[in-house]
Design a protein around this nucleic acid. Structure first.
Lengths: 350, 350
DNA sequence: AAAAAAATTGTGCGCGTGCAAAATTATTTA
DNA sequence: TAAATAATTTTGCACGCGCACAATTTTTTT
């Protein structure tokens, strides 16, 4: 079962390897008759290009720009980068050049700046997390004019210049949180959603989570659990944050569950006494070190893991599959909604 | 930043490529002086072998025998095979030959027969699920004499002829089940462990699960939950199975939780009426089609997913990393203990 | 119809490594 | 010390494909 090579095709078609090469790679300058014949024979033999030989011989260097928040500004983002590097390691000799560009997670200006810079690199594609909705759309349009497609991770966005999305379904992660509260709460308890984010954002990956949570309790009314939500935008200021939380407590005496919509649960928990907070069922996102502390001491009950490693890994593999292997890639690849508790936390990618 | 090649080393060392090649690959017939010089220069330059060029040029075909239960005898095993094929697809042109050998999951004789056959193929390694403890140990010994190392998935076994284990920690999956029961059960409820397996087995991947579950409740006594366990070995006979379950029910009036230690929950559930069974909290393993039905209609509450796809994928990648990339591979790679509920089931590998 | 231009096809080298045969150098034997 | 043997090193082809350039054929122009 030797693999079919262009040499085999050339011999059968009665032409030279060069001609077969031109047909296979659409380099033109081949007469219609010959082209058809070569294609027919290639199909008959079930020819598949030997990618490693191809990449070895080719001088073309594929270029991808990766634009992600800096781990310094948000710890979560260290892991997707590891995923990217790990994928890269698998395809080390494919002549792929990666340009890493980082921005402060709170700065939409820096985000725009770096994506613009990425576009100027004229890469084959840009892999990014489009955290800022409005800016992202504009930038993706700009990219489209320059014929630079995008691959996205973490937050979903619709645009026909986006080749793929790898990440969770925000809606369903909220819905799942509903289920987890439902198991753990009592009749007439109340769930409060806290969004600790700088811009009071209408980013879909936030609103969809809330929608999912609310929908869950619309569909499951046996316990009469009520949901309210708040945005704390100046969460970096401990005093203000604490004050706003106290107000919320007062306003919602039946509050028994707290749902943090992102990885910043620890920001509030750092400010509270254990006794005061352990009466709440708490669900947050992301297995970053600061949150794990609270998961392990029983303050956070569930963490929903967003598979940051695979976001990076699969994101880059999508690039490879699309550009190098010429494979169809899925427009949406929804990653699992991992339920992380104290008892299984050690087995997830730390 | 061009990559360093043997040519570069050869030039700097003042020898030919062939000599460098012999040093790099320990082919001998090189004088000590030259060898040391080449090694020194290679290290200085940070030489890394270009694997794709290497595999392209080499005539050596790596051979791996894969011995797994047939999907016909146990559906679970369709997925690890998919994982293996998927990994294989990534390294398609590395000249790896895979010999798939299947056995009926209930037959230790067939297992031994196929592993013996695998050894006779004289592969570079054997990837298998050592479901039968005693037989496995003997076979691994035989393999050791023939210098054939093993890679294992799914059930853990200690032997120094085993290069790696990829799968869950059975103990912790039982422990996790304890936690899940604890959340969902009441004071003085009882949990029954059901092991539906042919041989009343002392296989560690069964006993460890029970141990984990029991330990959980040893450490968490607030609800006074009691645990008992039973082996149903003739589970294929519906009548007998049902009878034995009824007996168990009678014997344990406080039974409120049922823990199935493997993927065969559906075998019993198929025999019971919905009304009769929905009062129990049920935890089982593996996202096979027949179980998913019961997860989706609310009869099974939790499925612990064993990542069958990754068992296969990582198992094969371990082979590649060890033999082709010459990388250290971990002796134990514990996969996540995924908690699957109705609300997140669609996002796990079906 | 010859020359020029255009279109098509063929050839050879290189990517980085493996491998075996040939060539060179060092060592032993007679 | 020459010949034989052993040890070491070099050389060249191969893997399958990309690519630049050469060679050939066809078409157009004069």
């Amino acid at each position: 079962m030797k693999n079919v090579t262009i040499k085999d095709i050339a011999k059968l078609a009665g032409v030279s390897r060069g001609t077969v090469d031109r047909v296979i790679n659409n380099r033109g300058n081949v007469s219609k008759m010959v082209e058809e014949k070569v294609i027919r024979i290639a199909n008959e033999l079930g020819y598949e290009k030997n990618i490693i030989a191809s990449r070895l011989a080719s001088t073309k260097v594929y270029k991808i720009a990766v634009v992600l928040p800096s781990p310094e500004s948000d710890l979560f983002w260290a892991i997707p980068k590891e995923g990217i590097l790990s994928a890269l390691n698998l395809v080390k000799y494919y002549r792929i050049k990666v340009e890493f560009l980082e921005y402060n997670i709170s700065s939409s200006e820096e985000f725009s700046f770096q994506v613009t810079k990425a576009i100027k690199c004229k890469p084959d594609a840009i892999l990014m997390a489009p955290l800022f909705l409005k800016e992202s759309e504009e930038l993706i349009n700009t990219g489209e004019q320059e014929k630079i497609p995008f691959l996205t991770i973490n937050s979903e966005l619709n645009h026909n210049n986006i080749l793929s999305y790898t990440g969770q379904s925000s809606y369903h992660s909220g819905y799942l949180a509903g289920k987890l509260f439902d198991i753990n709460l009592q009749h007439d308890d109340e769930v409060i959603v806290l969004n600790l984010a700088h811009e009071i954002s209408n980013a879909p990956h936030y609103t969809d989570k809330v929608k999912g949570l609310i929908d869950y309790f619309k569909e499951h009314k046996t316990k009469h659990i009520n949901v309210s939500w708040y945005e704390f935008d100046d969460f970096l200021n401990g005093e203000v944050l604490l004050k706003r939380f106290k107000e919320t407590q007062k306003k919602h005496p039946e509050m028994k569950g707290i749902f943090f919509t992102n990885s910043r649960a620890y920001r509030l928990l750092d400010l509270l006494e254990k006794e005061e907070i352990e009466k709440y069922k708490i669900i947050g996102f992301d297995m970053i070190e600061q949150n794990l502390k609270y998961l392990k001491n029983g303050i956070i009950d569930f963490i929903i893991n967003q598979n940051p490693f695979n976001q990076g890994y699969n994101g880059l593999m999508n690039f490879v599959n699309h550009f190098i292997h010429n494979k169809e890639i899925k427009k949406q690849e929804y990653l699992p909604l991992d339920i992380v508790v104290k008892e299984n936390v050690d087995f997830y990618y730390k």
